[in-house]
Amino acid sequence: MENALPRLGKGAAIVESDSAPNATGNRRAKARLTCHPVDAAPFTVSGKTARALRLLATNSDGITPLDCIPTIMRLGSIIWQLRHRYGLAISTEMEPHEDGRHARYRLVSRFRLESG
Rank of each mutant, 00 (worst) to 15 (best):
H84A: 06
A29T: 15
I14P: 00
E98D: 13
S17Y: 08
F111Q: 04
R28E: 03
H84R: 15
G62T: 01
R101S: 15
A29K: 15
F43G: 01
T92G: 01
R28I: 11
M94T: 11
T49D: 02
N26I: 06
M1T: 07
D39L: 06
T64F: 02
F111A: 09
L5S: 10
L55D: 01
L66I: 01
T49M: 05
R83E: 11
S17L: 12
P21Y: 05
K10Q: 14
T44G: 03
R83C: 10
R104M: 00
R27A: 09
A31L: 13
I78Q: 02
A41Q: 05
A41N: 09
M94L: 06
T58N: 08
R7V: 10
A41P: 00
P42G: 09
R101W: 12
T92W: 00
G25N: 11
I69P: 00
L8C: 10
T34H: 00
D99Y: 13
R106S: 06
G47K: 05
A52V: 12
R112D: 10
K10G: 02
T58L: 07
A89L: 11
A20W: 10
E114F: 09
T64Q: 11
L75A: 05
P37M: 06
F111H: 10
E98R: 14
S46E: 14
S17T: 09
G116N: 11
R7G: 03
N26E: 15
